[in-house]
Design a protein around this nucleic acid. Structure first.
Lengths: 120, 120
DNA sequence: TTTACATCTTCAAATTTTTGCAGATATTAG
DNA sequence: CTAATATCTGCAAAAATTTGAAGATGTAAA
């Protein structure tokens, strides 16, 4: 089995993991460092069980790691560069919103928000 | 509706488009420039109809564009940087193959193969 | 021009699986 | 016991992949 097929499969799997808005937002929430599950559940306004499920999937694929402290569990990105790399994908969604200038503005805004050097 | 939710959705959609091994390989085949459908169908060893359908999806999301010439249709990446960005994702699959050193080797090999400055 | 063949796209349809999600129930710690 | 997470269960909806056949277009030979 040629390497490129194997690797393409692995990549495809990771992309599938990332192909959910909630999980993308979770990763971006972890950009600045550790956050506990409860905080994430509040910030994303999702049922705690949902957040847990998403985190479990990210954990299985080793995109995040946990640290327990008392009854709180703090998550952080295994490789912090992941958050930046994802933002890099914004470049390629611009073609999708040719006729929606308001969406374009959203992209600009979020790119700033999801930047390492954000003052937010 | 907050921008970050909208943008996260758009990103998630792109990831879904990319979450198929065939489509990843197609994009990498287009890294060096235009290729016609028949060649792609031979290189990937897939039925022509499937290649067409994959390309149609990529076209809808404006990741590729076509150019007709006689009975051939040549496709190229709308934004050539896409191929590189996808390869950038290799960084994050390493955690997945902790116990498979052979797969690690595949990653190294393919990263070289799918690099802009590849001599291959 | 008619025939044939090559390239590419689209349709139809079966298949198969997913996949997201909520609510209840565990588990663990204080 | 209560609070914080995790997992389980099952449904619902949605969907994506895939194949083969048929259609469209283009070229070139007879």
């Amino acid at each position: 089995m040629p390497s490129r097929i194997i690797v393409a499969r692995e990549l495809a799997e990771i992309y599938k993991v990332l192909s959910h808005p909630d999980r993308i937002r979770l990763i971006e929430e972890l950009r600045a460092g550790e956050v506990d599950v409860n905080t994430l559940h509040e910030r994303l306004d999702l049922p705690a069980s949902r957040v847990s499920q998403h985190l479990a999937l990210l954990r299985i694929h080793r995109l995040v790691e946990e640290r327990r402290e008392g009854r709180h569990v703090f998550y952080h990105l295994t490789q912090p560069a992941l958050a930046d790399w994802i933002v890099g994908g914004l470049t390629f969604i611009e073609g999708r919103m040719v006729d929606q200038s308001d969406h374009r503005r959203d992209v600009v805004e979020v790119r700033k928000l999801w930047s390492t050097d954000a003052s937010a």
